[in-house]
């Protein structure tokens, strides 16, 4: 096992699959000669050549459209959006074609779209969003949101293997901040299986991505209050691990759903509604949501801090639930 950053684990997973399967190729803006805006594919073009590590023009429509076509012809494209925010340009291809092709024509579209997402470094409104809920809402698309280096590799390999279009949300703020042991060999992390990041008995936090760490820090503070907080890392938002979430909710009877995306229509709403529907008789408090306010992501560091849920916000929410 080697200790890898979250970013290195993504590279490792991608490299592993490209070495193993010649159908796998990477396409995106500056992914080749430059090695990617965040250097995920640094050295890839040297190893795999310009036909498998393709520098695309600044046209997300072309990237996703091209990847979709290649997938229909039997390849396994991995498309990189330089920032997740730019995927709106490719909406039509992704949502109208890729997501529906299998239902419409029986043709699988095994593409992976890598989406560097999330804020926390003053990237402003165009470079900080977490648009997973928009796509989780589209039948036919899968949405993956790894939080740890080990999952970043295992989930990327599963995403590439999967016969459906998979959106792979890699959190930029975790790229170099999070480092952990990652198995060197090839392995897969199943889509739709949550991970108990931290066991607890009094309150469940359901979250994913960078918020897993925010939740963990808050949970540690609650230890001092004698409140035991469980943190469930969803790992994939679509499909999401309903049984694991319901089991945790039934155990603790108090649930906090936490995400970095904005509140209204965020994926937390789906989770909260499901818990209310299916675990109503196990609840001892209203299901609580903590999420960003319904505004674009601000540039100003002070405002961005007010926008993205912070540890103290989560601590306050947990205390409220504990006292309920």
């Amino acid at each position: 096992m080697a200790e890898l950053t979250y970013l290195q684990a993504i590279s490792d997973g991608l490299r592993t699959e490209m070495r193993r399967d010649k159908r796998v190729f990477l396409i995106g803006e500056d992914v080749g000669v430059y090695g990617g805006a965040f250097k995920v594919s640094a050295g890839f073009q040297e190893e795999f050549g310009p036909w498998r590590v393709i520098d695309a023009p600044l046209a997300e429509t072309a990237i996703v459209g091209g990847a979709t076509g290649a997938a229909m012809m039997g390849l396994r494209p991995v498309a990189e959006m330089q920032f997740a925010d730019f995927i709106s340009c490719a909406w039509d291809h992704l949502v109208t074609i890729a997501a529906k092709q299998r239902w419409r024509a029986g043709t699988p579209v095994p593409i992976v779209v890598r989406l560097p997402s999330g804020g926390g470094f003053s990237g402003g409104p165009f470079h900080s969003q977490n648009p997973e809920s928009s796509f989780a809402h589209i039948p036919g698309l899968k949405c993956v949101c790894p939080a740890t280096p080990e999952d970043a590799k295992g989930l990327l390999i599963s995403a590439i293997e999967d016969p459906n279009p998979v959106l792979y949300f890699e959190h930029k703020h975790l790229y170099r901040r999070i480092k952990a042991e990652v198995p060197e060999e090839r392995y897969t992390t199943p889509l739709g299986k949550a991970r108990t990041h931290r066991e607890g008995s009094d309150i469940s936090v359901i979250t994913w991505g960078a918020m897993v760490y925010t939740a963990e820090e808050a949970a540690q503070q609650l230890d001092a209050d004698g409140v035991s907080v469980e943190v469930i890392d969803l790992r994939t938002v679509m499909p999401w691990d309903k049984p694991a979430v319901l089991e945790s909710a039934r155990k603790t009877s108090k649930v906090l759903v936490l995400h970095e995306d904005t509140r209204t229509g965020g994926f937390g709403a789906e989770i909260a509604a499901t818990i209310a529907e299916e675990a109503f008789e196990d609840l001892d408090a209203p299901v609580k949501r903590i999420a960003a306010p319904d505004t674009p992501v601000p540039f100003s560091p002070a405002l961005e801090k007010a926008f993205i849920p912070q540890v103290e916000d989560v601590v306050a929410g947990l205390r409220e639930l504990a006292e309920y």
Partner: peptide, 15 residues
């Protein structure tokens, strides 16, 4: 009846 004005009984407590 004793629930008159009493604090809220949550679903899990009721069950």
């Amino acid at each position: 009846s004793s629930d008159n004005g009493k604090a809220f009984v949550s679903p899990v407590v009721a069950r």
